[in-house]
Each structure stands twice: as structure tokens, then as C-alpha cells.
Amino acid sequence: MLVQVKTLKQLFQRYRRPGNFVFASLFLVLSLFLLSQIDSQTVWKSGTKFLSQPAFWPIISILCMTVFAALNWISAFVSPKIEGRWKEVAFWLKALEYIVWFMAYVYLVPTFGYLLSTVLFAVLLAFREGYRTTKMLSLSAAMAFTVVLVFKTFLQVKLPGGEIYELLPDATRAFMLTYF
């Protein structure tokens, strides 16, 4: 039987995507940051068994995450460079737009209420995604209205009514706060 010996570089070399080195670097930095914060975020209780300590599993998890992040970084470092790294990173950054949309929604719900904010954002996001016909925008508004109806009326989830409801007459305001 023939035994093949590989060098460390051959052992860690693998196929990777263009943005893998950036991802590996960011993940290693995150892992090291979490590892540096472990003392201030967990506790060791006296009189408790070692495996039952509140800090035990978080420390094990973060240590493993850091070791595997370091191995991933080494692997990305020794692999051949693939063109398009920053194009791939720019593609990832496009997803941040939806975080901004969501944060705007969360910010506006206390002002405009759950109903108006949900319908408005459903229509705006449908428009943003390219659904620009009246039929599709109406459908997105109807679906958003249905979601509000299900959550507020049938499931009775307590959601903010919004400052705008204060402008309504008393009977209408009570109805809107209860059902929409």
C-alpha cells in the first residue's frame, strides 16, 4: 500500500469562492472578539460541577468557533487567489439594504401604527423588487392587510397602535387600536 505524504499547504488548500478570504478574515476577527469578551459575559459559580457551569458551554463553543475560523483563514490564505473578491463582497453588501428597510419599518411602526406601516412597506418592497403593476401592488397591500388582520384580530398579538391613531375620533381610535 502506497502512503502519500502531503505538505501543510497541500493539506489546507481547497477550492474556494472569490470572497472566501474576506469572509474567513471577518469570521476570525469576530471569533477572536467573542473570545476576548468571554470573561465579562459568563460566570463560574462556586459549588457547581465543572460541566454544569454556566460558562462552560459558551467557552467550548467560542473556542471551537475560533479554532475552526483560524483553520478556515489558513486554508483561504494558502489557496490560490481567485479574481473577483471585491465584486463578491459588493454582492454581499447589497443585502444590507434590507436591514435598512427593516430598521425603517421598526422605527415607523410606533408613529404610523402596525397596519399603515405594514401595508406601506409591503407595497414599497414589492415595488422595489420590480413588481410594479397595479395588480401586484394591490395584491401586496391585500396580503399585508391580511397579515395585520390575522395577527391583531385573530391571534390578538399586542402590537403598537401608533401615534397617528391619536388623530382619529374616539370610537374609531378604539376600534383601530383593538383590531388594526
Results as ranks from 00 to 15, higher is better:
116 L>T: 09
72 N>W: 07
97 E>Q: 04
30 L>Q: 09
114 Y>V: 13
127 F>V: 09
44 W>G: 10
33 F>T: 14
147 V>H: 05
13 Q>M: 10
143 M>G: 08
93 L>V: 14
72 N>L: 10
102 F>M: 15
137 L>W: 07
105 Y>E: 04
19 G>E: 15
66 T>A: 14
58 P>S: 13
54 P>Y: 09
143 M>V: 15
148 V>F: 09
10 Q>G: 04
73 W>D: 07
34 L>T: 05
61 S>W: 11
114 Y>L: 10
100 V>F: 07
49 K>S: 14
74 I>F: 13
132 R>A: 08
146 T>F: 13
94 K>G: 11
44 W>P: 02
141 A>K: 01
92 W>F: 11
65 M>V: 07
79 S>V: 02
88 E>N: 11
138 S>H: 09
27 F>Y: 12
36 S>K: 02
140 S>C: 06
71 L>T: 05
43 V>W: 01
59 I>F: 03
89 V>H: 03
100 V>Y: 06
32 L>D: 03
122 A>G: 04
120 L>P: 05
109 V>W: 02
44 W>S: 12
16 R>H: 14
121 F>L: 06
146 T>A: 15
93 L>H: 11
41 Q>N: 09
117 S>Q: 08
94 K>Q: 08
133 T>P: 03
53 Q>C: 14
105 Y>A: 02
125 L>K: 01
129 E>C: 01
16 R>F: 08
74 I>W: 13
48 T>F: 06
124 L>T: 05
114 Y>A: 06
22 V>E: 10
